[in-house]
């Protein structure tokens, strides 16, 4: 086992995962105010109206595909009648469709970001770095699908990449599984790791704000003044307890 293989396929993914998790906790703890989609729709809507739904619905399909392909062992799929051939057809064609939707959406969004004046001015340095890694990850993933699956003989990543990921998840890494994997898949995995490490420090955090509770809450929200402090926005910091009149001796605990 070469050192580079261990670095690439054990150290990098674990480091990225650690940064991803710890980063999100810290960001949520200290930067709730910065936690937003930073929408630029008020500046421009003509391109966004197409690009944004294309990209987002596409990427949701892509994520669903990755869950099926990477996390579910193929024996389980065999058990419900999805054999290798059906899987390959489904994964390749649905995956390609999702990839085209996503990449086309991303191209529209990046074009918009560069050419629409106010949107470009509102783009931070972190946004630009994020776009590079997001674009690279999507690009290599699409290339891998096109080169090996659509126009090539087909590569069965469920014998290498998928078990590698599952082994990583249960903390029994087998980096050797990744060594023989074709180049574009390797690049896809590596750039994805880098993207995950960047994730908590970019606007991508809005993914974790997917408003699922909206389905279950009543329409009108009431909050008490006291609650809105506790639920909080601004936590009481240690040493900054509010000043209150001291309780007279002997009365302690009796009133409230």
């Amino acid at each position: 086992m070469s050192t580079s293989a261990i670095l690439l396929w054990v150290v990098l993914p674990y480091a990225a995962a650690a940064v991803f998790i710890v980063g999100h906790i810290l960001r949520y703890r200290y930067d709730k105010f910065g936690w937003t989609t930073r929408s630029s729709q008020t500046y421009e809507n003509r391109l966004l109206r197409w690009g944004s739904p294309m990209f987002h619905f596409g990427i949701l399909m892509v994520i669903a595909g990755h869950v099926v392909g990477l996390l579910i062992p193929r024996q389980w799929l065999y058990a419900i009648g999805i054999n290798e051939h059906i899987y390959h057809l489904g994964a390749t064609w649905m995956g390609t469709a999702a990839a085209i939707l996503t990449v086309a959406g991303l191209i529209i969004l990046i074009y918009r970001r560069r050419t629409v004046g106010p949107v470009f001015l509102a783009t931070t340095a972190m946004d630009k770095v994020m776009y590079v890694f997001l674009g690279a990850t999507l690009g290599f993933g699409t290339l891998a699908t096109l080169v090996y699956q659509v126009f090539g003989p087909g590569y069965s990543y469920r014998e290498s990449i998928s078990p590698w990921i599952r082994q990583m998840i249960i903390f029994q890494p087998h980096p050797e599984m990744m060594v023989e994997v074709p180049l574009f898949f390797q690049l896809h995995v590596a750039t994805a790791c880098a993207l995950f490490a960047l994730w908590p420090f970019t606007r991508l955090v809005h993914v974790f704000s997917a408003p699922i509770p909206y389905f279950f809450r009543p329409y009108i929200v009431y909050r008490s003044r006291d609650e809105s402090r506790g639920a909080g926005s601004r936590p009481v910091r240690r040493g900054w307890d509010p000043v209150a009149a001291p309780q007279p001796r002997g009365k302690r605990g009796s009133n409230r």
Binding site: T37, R225, S228
Partner: peptide, 27 residues
């Protein structure tokens, strides 16, 4: 308030003032 997916907007129970929780708003 009813349209807010994040539940960041609320009506204050004491005096009915409608506010946006800037830390909970996700844009």
């Amino acid at each position: 308030v009813a349209s807010c997916p994040s539940g960041a907007m609320y009506k204050r129970a004491e005096d009915g003032i409608v506010l946006v929780d800037q830390d909970a708003c996700r844009g």
